[in-house]
Amino acid sequence: MADSLSEACTPLKQAYDTCFNAWFEGYLEPAVAVRNQQNSREVYAKQKAEEFEAKCGKLWVSYKSCIQGALKEKGIDDMLKQAREEHPLKEAVPVPSSPSK
């Protein structure tokens, strides 16, 4: 598993990644299987979102507070702020077939 950009955050990051990966594997294939039934799909998505929070929520809080401190320390937070303003990316972007300009 990849390291964090901050050595101090690596153990927290790896614990969180392990939790996410385990949850994600259980999530993806059933989610694809129920994709054509709107009702079951929404019940499933909601239930799984809650399960993710219950299983990995605490690990996330610890990792997040560590990495946010590290981003500040390395001066990456300012670059990130600018990047988020320029490209909010709240929705998926289709792959362009030709140059944008």
Partner: peptide
């Protein structure tokens, strides 16, 4: 050349099931 990967934000949409993840690769 990729020496670090960090997750900065992740959401699971409870309606669409779409997972959005923001990461920073070092």
């Amino acid at each position: 050349h990729v020496i670090s990967v960090d997750v900065l934000d992740r959401t699971v949409d409870p309606v669409t099931g779409v997972i959005r993840t923001e990461r920073v690769l070092g």
